[in-house]
Simulated scan of single mutants.
Amino acid sequence: MTQTDDRTEQRQGAPRGGAHAEPRRFATATDFLDRRAAEATTGPATWGWRGAVRRMSGGLVSPAMGPAEAEHHDLRRRVQRDLDGPRTIAFVNPKGGAAKTTGVLAAGCTFGTVRGGGVVAWDNNETRGTLGIRGARAGHHNTTRELLEDLERFDQVGSSRIGDLGAYVRSQGDAHFDVLASDERPDVTGTIHADDFGAVHGLLERFYRVILVDTGNNMRAENWLAAAGAADLLVVTSTVREDTGYSGLWMLDALADAGVPDLKHRTLTVLSDPSPTVDKGLAADLVDVYEQRTRSVHRVPYDPALVSGSVVPYTELSRATQRSWLAACAAMADAL
């Protein structure tokens, strides 16, 4: 080999130590861009005294993020992670007052604002639920019932558009997610069946990346079972009350007895405080038992902004409540 050939091979990354030497590892263009993911949680501080020092010095002194700010950015990054297809999360507990609807709306606000859209919250109650009441209203009164009646509008995949769903879903404004309410007409009888769930779910999967399902209280209902079967993740919601916590555990027992596969790793728990003070012993017991039964448990503090039973004012929630839901949604994204 000539000296010129040798220099050429070195420039091309050929090993210099003979045929058996390890080739040099060069950073690829993708590696170059991926470095930003790490920088997002290690960049200059904007919070607290660190951020104040940076601003006052005009950036000449630029402390790194503190632990709390770095964790916040990491949680946001996890919520924003790419998914390789639509994902469905069902919020479940067969007892009323278990914070299912509150949880769906809080998760909708979190996923919607942090991911930037592509999220729908669906009230899959077999008759009438309250998700439509607690979400922002729209200029129409259409619900799942009307969508079922008009499904033929979406038969042609090539010509149907997400904008056409605007006649049935309700935009939640700055929260960047939509709500599909359950039937609200008092003159209509009948329930939502498994086939109905499948038809609507299949349509929503065409247009949304994250589908949050608010379930009813009858886990023997066809649409409840269909939602549990279709969900990529189950979120057990409970308050720090013995009856609500028992109900969720009873449900997990029933699902395990029914042979639901990989139940522990397909389920996580959100445990909310129903009042400013709760029984700490009961809270510890519930965390312990649900940690045994589900992949993780996430505590949400009491927030007076949620007690009215009206629209969930996400921007008025306390910083602690918003952070708790950010952590819970990050865990949901991890599970997906």
Rank of each mutant, 00 (worst) to 15 (best):
M1A: 11
T4R: 15
Q10F: 10
A14Y: 13
A21C: 07
F26E: 15
L33I: 14
R35W: 13
T41D: 08
R50H: 11
V53M: 08
P63N: 07
E71V: 01
V79D: 00
D82V: 13
I89N: 09
P94G: 06
G108I: 03
V114S: 05
G117P: 02
G118R: 04
V120L: 08
D123T: 04
G129A: 02
G129Q: 03
G132I: 01
H141K: 14
L151N: 13
A167H: 09
Y168F: 07
A175E: 11
L180Y: 00
A181M: 07
A181E: 12
G190C: 04
T191F: 12
I192Y: 12
A199F: 01
L203Q: 00
G216E: 07
N218D: 14
A221S: 11
L225Y: 13
D232Q: 08
L234D: 06
T237D: 07
V240E: 03
A254M: 13
A258M: 11
P261V: 04
D262I: 04
K264V: 07
R266H: 10
T267R: 02
V270A: 02
S272V: 00
V278P: 03
D285V: 11
D285G: 14
T294N: 06
R295W: 08
A305N: 00
A305S: 01
Y314H: 06
A320G: 05
T321I: 01
Q322C: 08
C329T: 11
